[in-house]
Design a protein around this nucleic acid. Structure first.
Lengths: 167, 167
DNA sequence: TCTATCTAGTTCAACTTTCAAGAAAAGGTC
DNA sequence: GACCTTTTCTTGAAAGTTGAACTAGATAGA
């Protein structure tokens, strides 16, 4: 028998509480900030914008649905709805996968690429202003390592992992 | 005339792109992770849980709506919906503010406090596992500084700021 | 006072996300 | 091949969020 469920909780120290709070505050504000920036300048939430970026960098501007979901760290259901919306905007279209008849490719259209080119400078500027202009080089480096560590921690190797794109 | 709108965009360096991507991945995964943990163990999304925590730490377990929205970094509209839901659960109730007839206080009920006590150990453990157990002391310290910097950057002193709780 | 403006909070409609369920094809195994 | 399981993706309903419009009360100025 394990005692985990009844042993005294390892509460956060004051320092840890402050860091945790700061993390929640910063990420909430940043998400709000970029969602608004992109809603205003590109007519879509940040998640959707990220999908177009992924597609623009993929070979032949297309990607399998599950692969795209994995890259974006979201569920396939969420992706289905998102692609449906982007398709309505004319920025993406679906295409049957030739090698697997269950599969779909999401393809970035020319209109989609245009819209990306138009909005990219403004978005990069926003990212700079909100993040990179405010941090020292060391902090940027440190942030990268920390975030990679945290992301890796939630994507275990084993097949038993509860990952969004496998749900 | 400013040249900002026509000057060449300051694109992100490879390093910056990697950091930005890592940030998005980690924050997306973490949000998903904690939302699921709390939905499972406490029956509410993480944002709602945070509201109960705030109330539990406030004097007399109550707080004005706008003040609560400011602390949580969310809009008043979002908060209204959230409190309505939590009220339906019996964990919060509303109370007229005596000094300002427009105002409302959100009050944490006894049931709300109980539910918080029951779920806190599990949540703290989840936060530890996903974040603090994976980082060195230096990284935790660094993360705190970085997040405070970023949050502050999005909450300018001036009265012209576009802050969620003022919208 | 009277009036214009501002602040606190809510509400509605449109949109996004989640969860559970389901259709269709692929991949074993006998 | 027939059967069972897994994988891929979609769908529909419920829950959550957003942005704009709105009510009511506070505030400030003429």
């Amino acid at each position: 028998m394990t005692t985990a469920s009844t042993s005294a909780p390892r509460w956060l120290t004051d320092e840890e509480q402050r860091v945790w709070r700061a993390y929640l505050h910063a990420t909430t504000l940043l998400e709000d900030h970029f969602d608004r920036q992109l809603q205003r300048d590109a007519g879509m939430p940040h998640t959707y914008y990220g999908l177009l970026v992924q597609l623009s960098q993929a070979p032949r501007r297309r990607m399998r649905m599950t692969e795209l979901a994995r890259n974006a760290k979201i569920t396939r259901s969420r992706l289905s709805h998102a692609i449906a919306r982007l398709e309505k905007n004319g920025w993406v279209r679906r295409e049957d996968c030739p090698s697997d008849k269950r599969g779909q490719n999401a393809v970035l259209t020319d209109d989609g690429l245009d819209m990306l080119r138009r909005s990219a400078p403004g978005h990069v500027e926003a990212v700079r202003q909100a993040m990179f202009d405010r941090l020292t080089d060391e902090q940027v480096k440190s942030l990268g390592e920390i975030m990679r560590t945290l992301a890796t921690g939630l994507e275990p190797e084993g097949a038993d992992a509860d990952l969004p794109w496998l749900r």
